[in-house]
Every structure is written in structure tokens, then in C-alpha cells.
Design a protein around this nucleic acid. Structure first.
Lengths: 158, 158
DNA sequence: CGAATCTAGTTGCGCACGCAACTATCACCG
DNA sequence: CGGTGATAGTTGCGTGCGCAACTAGATTCG
């Protein structure tokens, strides 16, 4: 990250701050990749899992494409492509809204629901063993409150 | 994430655990994207910045390609391509090792050093304002220790 | 020594994604 | 109404990356 900040003086990270930042940067991608990899043995990749999970939690198990895209942190076009797989697998169907001809709902099918119901416990176990169960209650709480603050700041930066 | 875990019984996340997990998943990519975006106004993308930063901290400001790839969480081929840009910009040069003809060192040039020295304070300010300064000392410490534990677990899973 | 194996790096190929452009629909307003 | 602009979704194109295959150089062992 380079020393020599002297000139434009925001003060350098102290050791604890540094450890938090570096830990976050280097570990978060590793962790997410590992959890995605765990899912692959059940025949689904991380992106598709998140998609089905989002739908499974939505009222009526359906969401407008653009809302779904936002929750998945995908662009609208990215989601269009993501949908190909889960549509072909019949895990999700698309329904045009009768009240607003622009919007299309992504709707979790019975097959999709059964599938994710089967996979979810393994995913949960993966999340627990690779992250949650490793952390103390204090750390759990700090992750929750910390990311909440960060998220709030992110949102107000659009 | 789907209810109905009943059958294969790892117990569901309690509210605090859930908040930690969801906060992490949804916020970490937002945060990283935002910080990368901050860098772009200085004419560099997040990937290239990390590359230069790694080299700037290495002894002699050089690293074997494969070590660099590992630290950047890139595949070897991914790094080969990443190098194109920073080589063309003359921020980095490549030197074949005289003792082992297979290895190539990526070496930060004077130009590259001057460049990152100029950008680093802004990056630091970005990291501070979007993450570090938002967190309490307790949270900073918990992020550090938490990610350390997770990282240890990740490494032993190869 | 020579053959099999390992390691470092590059190249071919495919995939997932974002951005910009386009179409279709809706909402606002003169 | 009809026109202007916003919004939802898809398609064309470029990019970044991983995997597999390949080359070149090192290491191990009979």
C-alpha cells in the first residue's frame, strides 16, 4: 500500500486498522470463492444460488427483474444472461406484469423451490463452518454493526 | 436463504449471525467496487493498483510472477494479462531470473513508484472514509481478528 | 547420464459481466 | 390528446478472468 504519505496528509493506518483492512481485502474473496465452490458439488454455482435464494425469500417467490438485479449486485443485462441457466433448468419462470407492460417477474417454480430447499442446508453448513462458527459473539456482532455502517455510507454515495 | 432446514439439521443462523453474514455478502462487493471506482479518477483501476501496491511493498520492489499472482488472488494466466497494461505504461518491467531460467520477476520501475506514491494518499483517504473511519475501535479489532480466523481456515482447506 | 516428473509462464478458448445502444411501455404536461 | 422524458428489459460489443494445453527450464532417481 506504499508508505510516504507525508505530502497529502491523511494519516496512515495504524496496525489494528491495517490488519482489519488487509484481512478484509484478502480474505473476503477467498471466503466467497470457497463457499461458491462448496455449492458446485450440488450442481449449482454461486450466482445461480443467490438468485434462487433471493426469489425464495421474496413475497410470492417472485421479483421484478430490476429489483432482483439490484439485490444480486448485477446490471440489468447481467441478470438477463444469468437467467438463461435457471430458465432452461426450469427453476424460474418469467411472467409479464399485466398492470405494467414493461416489467417482467422472475418467479421461482416448484422445481426451483424443491431444489434450493435441498441445497440450502449444505450451503448453511458451509457458511457456518467457514465463517460464522469461527467467530466469537463479539466478532459476530461487530461484523453486523460494522457492515451496517459501511452499507449506509455506500448507499448515500449512490 | 430459504427456511425449512429441518431434515439435515445444521441449525439456522440466529438474527445476529444472519446480520453478520448478509452484511458481509452484500456490502463487501459494494465497498470494494466503490473504492475501485475512487481510484479510476486517478487513471488506474483497482486491479492495477493492487499490483503496483504489492510490488511497492516487496523487498527490492520485485516479485516472482507466481508469487505476485497468489497475492493478488489471480491465476497465473490472469496475471500475465494484467501485466500487459502496467508493462505498456512502463510502471513495471520484467526481468528473467539468472539463477532459474523459468522465473520472471515483475519489477516496479521508478515511474511506477512515483505514480503509486502520488495515488496512494487518495486511496488511503478512500479506504478511511468508506470503511476504517466508520468503525469503532472494537469493530476494527473484531474485523482484524475475525478475518484472521477465517483466513486461517481458508488456507487449511487449500 | 537420461527419463520421468515438477514448476513457471504464456497462449487458446470460453464464460460472466458491464456499458452503450435499442425497443417497448408508462408517466407527465402543454 | 400528442410529445417528451423516464423506466424495464434485451442485444452488441469489449474486457477480465479461469481452465486446459503447451513450452521451457529445473529436479529427482534409476
Amino acid at each position: 500500500m506504499v508508505r510516504l504519505v507525508a505530502v497529502t496528509n491523511p494519516k496512515w493506518l495504524n496496525p489494528a486498522e491495517m490488519k482489519a483492512w488487509r484481512g478484509f481485502v484478502s480474505t473476503s474473496s477467498d471466503l466467497l470463492n470457497l463457499i461458491a465452490r462448496d455449492l458446485e458439488s450440488f450442481g449449482i454455482d454461486g450466482g445461480d444460488y443467490q438468485l434462487l435464494a433471493m426469489l425464495s425469500e421474496a413475497p410470492d417467490q417472485k421479483l421484478k427483474m430490476c429489483d432482483l438485479a439490484e439485490r444480486l449486485r448485477l446490471s440489468r443485462s447481467g441478470l438477463t444472461r444469468r437467467m438463461d441457466g435457471v430458465l432452461k433448468a426450469k427453476y424460474v419462470s418469467q411472467v409479464r406484469d399485466s398492470h405494467d407492460g414493461r416489467v417482467v417477474f422472475a418467479h421461482l417454480t416448484k422445481k426451483g423451490f424443491d431444489f434450493i430447499k435441498k441445497v440450502a442446508p449444505h450451503h448453511l453448513e458451509s457458511v457456518r463452518s467457514r465463517m460464522i462458527d469461527l467467530l466469537s459473539p463479539t466478532e459476530i456482532h461487530a461484523f453486523g454493526s460494522g457492515f451496517e455502517k459501511i452499507a449506509k455510507n455506500v448507499k448515500q454515495s449512490d
